[in-house]
Design a protein around this nucleic acid. Structure first.
Ligand SMILES: [Zn+2]
Ligand SMILES: [Zn+2]
Ligand SMILES: [Zn+2]
Ligand SMILES: [Zn+2]
Lengths: 121, 121
DNA sequence: ATTGAAAATGACAACCATTTCCATTTTTGC
DNA sequence: GCAAAAATGGAAATGGTTGTCATTTTCAAT
């Protein structure tokens, strides 16, 4: 799992933001990087599992991906244009931990996303 | 836009939380409420436009809907056995609204889920 | 009550992102 | 070098969602 992963990561760097699997496939084709669409999907799944790539969904349900920094953070996403702002977790981090603790859970993690319409839309 | 809307809203009440269009269609069929799947989709779109219904996406991309004004809460889920506890949003509600406001977003919503291992596992 | 335009409905087909299948190629371990 | 395992990619299948369009229902005007 490496030749393809490298190509997909390069494509993600090139686009510099969110891109769908199909868009990434096109980008790679244009750059003479032969790679199958199936492999692009498979590679993206692996990268998401590795937490190297973030995945989220457009309003129409299509999955879009982007490189993920290693620091823990959350996203504020425009439902209309996809503009994304990275947000510090702040209070939510303690809230999640506390809620889990109070109910006797351990190995507590969380997901959180904020969405809305940005000022440009 | 009324006969179908009424039926779909009743189905949403009956399930009492999130449900997909296809699930709602099944619920209506089971209750002798004849309604086409196409009409369920169309009606849900209208209800979402009217802001009578919230829409969000499962991880697999399928759309799920719920009545707006259903008491808003979050879930604490055991990764091992699936046990689920409903959690009051508390801090996260303000955090989401504030984060959106500070970045000039409007119509702000959020998703959040906490997961871990429960005390029985 | 009659009429006719406009809206709503639903069976069916089309769409399209994603997944599955499987034969072929590439890599790995010895 | 060689066999086993992993990776690859084209084609076909999947499945949620949307488009089409003929039919039915609604409802205001006559
Ligand atoms: Zn925007
Ligand atoms: Zn966090
Ligand atoms: Zn458990
Ligand atoms: Zn909340």
């Amino acid at each position: 799992m490496s030749k393809s992963a490298t190509k997909v990561l390069q494509a993600l760097e090139r686009v510099g933001g969110f891109a769908s699997a199909q868009e990434l496939h096109l980008v790679l084709k244009r750059n003479q990087e032969s790679i199958g669409l199936t492999t692009v999907y498979r590679t993206l799944q692996n990268l998401v599992n590795d937490k190297s790539v973030d995945i989220l969904r457009k309003d129409d349900g299509e999955a879009i991906y982007r490189l993920c920094g290693d620091s823990h953070h959350h996203h504020l996403v425009c439902k209309n244009c996809g503009k994304t702002v990275e947000i510090e977790g702040g209070a939510i981090e303690k809230w999640a931990q506390k809620s889990g603790d109070e109910n006797g859970f351990r190995e507590i993690g969380h997901t959180a996303e904020i969405f809305g319409i940005c000022s440009d839309c």
